[in-house]
């Protein structure tokens, strides 16, 4: 529904200046090009034009004196994001079709890594509790910044709960930092030279659409000869995950996170410890009476 709204709100001739700014930003970023940074001898991080483009537009938006990128262009922007994502999907579909044989190979690892994703909250949830988070931590740690995770969380806890704030927080972190983190991780892993290129590509597809495109971009730049295989594996991983991650979240990750929260909240979280003390004191005074 929201998507239909943004389609009707689209007025190309009215917002042409805004689109003009965006294309200028894109041209500028493409002219700068990819910047490889060698952290150590065999760990190379590649900054991509897509990253500068995101940073520049965010900065232009936050810079209030620049009226050409403003809240009133929100409709146009989300519509154009939608349209360009569709073009990207068509391009990725063609890459996938061209490398259909290697995708069949990817299906087994992708299914298992999705059910294993549920286990990541074993590490991240205690950390969140130690940092003083409340129930937000459930939404924050049960999945890896996926569009489907938001829907699952909304269905289970409603959109007003703190769990939902957590899942939205994760999505924002994923969009802003996830692209950088995935780019870093893929380039570090592939320059280490221990892992198969296809394994890294499968892992690059683990997050949201923008995260996996950052991963594909970085890997394809480092191994241009296998661009088709990389994007096929990562896209397959992303597509298969989209279908499976929802079930993995409902049946494994969320119940596990709930159970872990109940177990660890009184021990690790400051407010949880205080609550436990109060409850004990209340129980004691109850005994006395």
């Amino acid at each position: 529904m929201e998507q239909n709204k943004s389609i009707e709100a689209f007025t190309p001739w009215k917002d042409w200046k805004f689109h003009g700014v965006i294309i200028l930003v894109c041209i500028l970023c493409e002219l700068i090009g990819a910047i490889p940074i060698d952290i150590t001898e065999n760990i190379r991080v590649t900054l991509l034009p897509l990253l500068y483009a995101m940073v520049i537009t965010t900065a232009l938006y936050l810079f209030k004196k620049f009226p050409l990128v403003d809240k009133k262009h929100e409709g146009s922007a989300s519509f154009m994001m939608n349209v360009t994502c569709l073009i990207l999907m068509a391009k990725l579909g063609i890459n996938t079709g061209n490398a259909i044989d290697s995708i069949a190979e990817a299906s087994l690892p992708v299914i298992f890594s999705n059910f294993g994703d549920a286990l990541t909250c074993l590490i991240a949830l205690p950390l969140g509790l130690l940092l003083g988070m409340d129930r937000e931590v459930i939404g924050l740690t049960f999945g890896c910044s996926r569009e489907g995770g938001i829907a699952v969380c909304e269905g289970r806890y409603g959109s007003k709960g703190s769990e939902f704030r957590g899942v939205m927080g994760m999505y924002i972190v994923g969009t802003v930092f996830g692209t950088i983190v995935i780019g870093l991780l893929t380039s570090i892993c592939s320059s280490m030279g221990i892992f198969n290129l296809s394994s890294i590509a499968i892992a690059a597809g683990c997050g949201s659409a923008s995260m996996s495109s950052a991963g594909i971009g970085t890997l394809a730049l480092m191994h241009p000869e296998s661009e088709d295989m990389i994007s096929a594996m990562a896209t397959a991983s992303n597509l298969i995950s989209t279908a499976i991650a929802i079930y993995a979240a409902i049946f494994i990750a969320l119940p596990l996170a709930e159970w872990e929260f109940k177990l660890l909240y009184p021990i690790l979280s400051k407010s949880g410890r205080e609550e436990r003390k109060k409850a004990k004191a209340a129980a004691k005074s109850g005994e006395k009476n």
């Binding site: 930003v25 483009a53 965010t58 154009m80 360009t84």
Partner: peptide, 21 residues
Amino acid sequence: QLLAVVTPILAYSGLVIGRDW
């Protein structure tokens, strides 16, 4: 090129990020 298609998406997403800042 894949990246030529991806860069505009993220350029547009900058506005959404700015909005939710």
